[in-house]
């Protein structure tokens, strides 16, 4: 009796209010889109193109970091909070390697930087990969069969450890990163598209395509997908899941290391706690696109970069973070598994 009364009240009171709230949300979204569109039209196409360039370049870096989150989550359902700090560590390691490979500001913009820079990239990526594999071995593998919260907390702990190490190494100040890339650009439709922007987009794009091919075509990629679906069955098939998971951490960290190096080359500054905010947005990007989904992470990263640039360029930047998370909530309300959806393993 009481229960049915309660239900009736809920049906009576909540449904109309719910509908009203939905309507208000839709109106608010339309209003914001309208204002933004008016400003975009008002400021002309070349400015729009310029902002898009910044957004895509920024988004490409987020995407690289987001891939690491999504791969690790996809395979062992762990949110690796230390991943953002690994990205920063990549930047720190590469800034340390630059002089060893003979790179400094005097060589900026010359063709001579290409080979040494490639070497710096590869060494940084390998070191980051090795560090992440060790982190997995020490902090996550022993807890693989423990309650879900335990590895989550060790991940937070590893994040603090990495930040602490970088703090002791370089101190609290912004670390200058030499401006090696050419500062010139091409003028297209009134917008300047810098060599730096192109560099970021191309390098990140290549890495993402290679990753996608690797996961879909190679034997190890197949093993990863199998492990993500069912660890026990995979093991029964004779696949070493420890090795497969370690490989996932390795690849994720390789991308983070590359991301850190690209960030340094693009913004010419690093700071020890950069990983916190970068990691937060990259993780958001992964959720945006559908966590566990590699294409989704790339799309999510790109979108976050674009939203940030558009909002900073046209609206009040005080609200940028609010808008990103408001859009995330909206997406999750309508598509709880993110834009592209997660391939949910059957268990």
């Amino acid at each position: 009796m009481v229960g049915s009364l309660k239900q009736a009240r809920i049906a009576f009171v909540e449904a109309p209010i719910g509908r009203l709230v939905n309507l208000l949300v839709i109106l608010a979204v339309l209003y914001v889109i309208f204002i933004l569109a008016m400003k975009v039209v008002g400021q002309g196409p070349s400015y729009f193109l310029q902002i898009l360039t910044f957004g895509v370049a920024n988004g490409a870096i987020y995407a690289l970091v987001a891939l690491g989150y999504t791969m690790v989550y996809g395979i062992i359902e762990l949110i690796n909070f230390a991943h953002g700090d690994l990205f920063t560590l990549g930047g720190f390691i590469s800034v340390f390697l630059l002089p060893i490979f003979g790179l400094d500001a005097s060589k900026a913009g010359t063709a001579g930087i290409i080979l040494p820079l490639l070497a710096v990239f590869i060494v940084t990526m390998l070191i980051c990969g090795a560090i992440n594999v060790s982190i997995e071995r020490v902090a996550y593998r022993p807890l693989r069969r423990a309650p879900r919260l335990a590895p989550l907390i060790t991940a937070v702990g590893m994040s603090f450890v990495l930040e602490g190490v970088m703090f002791l190494w370089k101190g609290p100040f912004n670390v200058p990163y030499p401006n090696l890339l050419p500062t010139t650009g091409f003028v297209i439709g009134g917008a300047t598209i810098g060599v730096k922007d192109i560099f970021v987009i191309v390098v990140a794009g290549i890495l993402m395509v290679v990753l996608a091919l690797f996961v879909s075509r190679s034997r190890l990629g197949k093993a990863m997908r199998a492990t993500a679906q069912d660890q026990d069955a995979t093991e029964l098939m004779g696949i070493d899941i420890n090795r497969t998971i370690a490989a996932t951490f390795f690849i994720g960290a390789v991308l983070a290391g590359a991301g850190g190096t690209i960030f340094g080359l693009y913004y010419n500054t690093m700071v020890f706690d950069l990983g916190f905010s970068a990691g937060l947005f990259a993780f958001t990007a992964a959720v945006f696109g559908g966590i566990g989904n590699i294409q989704g992470a790339a799309l999510g990263g790109l979108l976050i970069g674009l939203i940030t640039a558009l909002w900073d360029g046209y609206m009040e930047s005080t609200w940028t973070q609010v808008i990103i998370f408001a859009i995330l909530i909206l997406v999750l309300v309508f598509r709880p598994t993110g834009l592209l959806g997660m391939r949910v393993p059957e268990k």
Binding site: L274, F276, S317
Partner: peptide
């Protein structure tokens, strides 16, 4: 513009 500088790089 007012920025949250903890999360702004660009």
């Amino acid at each position: 513009q007012d920025f949250d500088t903890k999360t702004t790089n660009d």
